[in-house]
Simulated assay, not measured.
Amino acid sequence: MTALQIQGLLHEGKAKKVFQTDRPGVVAVQYKDDATAFNAQKKAQLAGKGLLNWEISARLFEALEAQGISSHYLGCLEPGWMVVQEVEIVPVEVVLRNRAAGSLCRQLPIKPDTPLQPALLDLYYKDDALGDPLLTEARLELMQLLSAAERVELERLARAVNAALQTLMRPLQLELVDFKLEFGRSADGRLLLADEISPDTCRLWEVGVADAEHRILDKDRFRKDLGGVVEAYGEVLKRVQGLGSSPRQYR
């Protein structure tokens, strides 16, 4: 089979660029060094961040695949480049919280670090201009973003991802505090895990570290001006590399 040919830019987001390829239904994703927070109100360039998020995401997609969780991930090209199945992104962000932190503690009278069992699952409308508003049952029905069957499947998949990631990360001394997922519809109508799984989208704490700042190994280091963002992401990658061999090459 001839090598994959990358063609025109299809979309550029805050952290990635998506390119058309010469193969139907297959796109290439380039991870960027851009760091953003608060709906891109805060921005910076962090050299090396894209490579770290690319490899962490690839390894976690493969680890989830081994546990029976399908995603748009197909494999990798050169460092920083991932090949994925083209999907129609569902404009709904799924947030699962295993422990209270961040915005939840600002919006509700819940103390930080409070364990949430079962994990709290919230859905948000994916629109930066509107501030990614929380979706209620009535709002979901009003906007017809998901069918009833898709809503059930979305939540089932999200909870399966949560359980699998917790199982994977626990031996790595990483606590999955909360995280954001995105899903896409494949050409045959299936819901597939999409986007990325990285310290940009997951709140990760180092197990056994009591200090509320020193334990942070995720984008909160950027949000809170704590420094050491790339170093923290590098520590996450070093641990995730313990899950197995290097990410597979796309053929």
Score class of each variant (00 low, 15 high):
72 H>P: 02
111 K>T: 03
98 N>D: 10
85 Q>E: 15
56 I>A: 02
62 E>L: 09
55 E>W: 11
72 H>W: 04
54 W>N: 02
71 S>C: 10
53 N>R: 09
100 A>L: 04
93 E>C: 13
89 I>R: 14
101 A>L: 10
119 A>K: 14
112 P>M: 02
70 S>G: 08
53 N>T: 08
76 C>P: 10
115 P>Y: 01
63 A>H: 09
88 E>L: 15
90 V>R: 02
97 R>V: 02
66 A>F: 08
89 I>C: 13
56 I>S: 03
95 V>Q: 04
110 I>E: 00
97 R>S: 05
92 V>M: 12
72 H>K: 03
111 K>C: 11
80 G>M: 01
92 V>A: 14
79 P>A: 09
103 S>G: 13
55 E>Y: 11
67 Q>D: 10
76 C>Y: 05
120 L>K: 11
61 F>Y: 05
90 V>T: 04
75 G>C: 03
119 A>Y: 13
54 W>A: 04
77 L>T: 02
97 R>P: 07
61 F>Q: 12
80 G>D: 01
59 R>P: 02
77 L>N: 01
76 C>Q: 11
57 S>R: 03
112 P>A: 03
75 G>Y: 01
63 A>P: 11
73 Y>R: 11
98 N>R: 04
113 D>P: 06
100 A>E: 02
84 V>Q: 04
81 W>N: 10
98 N>Y: 08
67 Q>M: 07
83 V>F: 04
72 H>D: 05
106 R>T: 08
86 E>R: 11
70 S>F: 00
117 Q>E: 15
87 V>P: 12
119 A>M: 14
95 V>Y: 05
80 G>H: 02
118 P>F: 08
118 P>I: 12
75 G>I: 00
68 G>P: 13
118 P>V: 10
90 V>H: 05
95 V>P: 06
88 E>V: 15
66 A>E: 07
65 E>I: 14
117 Q>I: 15
59 R>A: 08
74 L>V: 06
114 T>L: 03
99 R>Q: 12
85 Q>A: 14
69 I>L: 10
107 Q>E: 03
60 L>P: 08
63 A>I: 12
87 V>S: 15
97 R>D: 05
96 L>R: 03
94 V>H: 06
101 A>G: 04
89 I>P: 12
98 N>S: 13
115 P>C: 01
69 I>V: 09
57 S>G: 02
88 E>Y: 15
76 C>I: 14
74 L>Q: 04
106 R>S: 15
105 C>S: 01
97 R>W: 06
82 M>S: 06
78 E>L: 12
